[in-house]
Amino acid sequence: MTHSEIIVLLRSRFGDAIGQWHDMSSDNAYQRQMGSYLDVTEPGVIQKLAFFLRDEKGLEFNNLILLSTLDNSDGSLSVVYHVESTQYQHELTFKVTLPRDNAKVPTVCTVWSHANWHEREAWDMMGIRFEGHPDHRRILLEEDYPGHPLRKDFREPDFYHGMKVPY
């Protein structure tokens, strides 16, 4: 399916929760690695959307390639989902934007188990809560590390466990 067909299908199903389609295919030769993405305006719909994308006949996005996060530096954080279908060889990127001080989004690791560690990393690095995640711990940093370092306003602590941080 082409992107426009997918978007029409999603809009008919999820209505206003599906936001703008940012199409960037015009100035790039590589069709499949495009920077095009779809805005999802309603964070609460993510899990339903994910199930729909995975299970709907004709879509079958069975592979979550990557779950990444962005700090937009305007008081909002984004979670970016890259999904593809190994059967139909089409892919889709969708992005959900969350308020910085209460960043919460339903987990998709019940849909794609690959999301499990990526969501833990997103919590660890960007401080985004994934509701319903089975193992919501930090993954790379220590449990007691102060703050979430990939946020643009993160300042490293002067002391960590009594050790001076910037040598």
Partner: peptide, 14 residues
Amino acid sequence: EIYSRTETPRGELG
């Protein structure tokens, strides 16, 4: 923005 991937010995590096 872009997501680009290549096949490294360990798998898909994007």
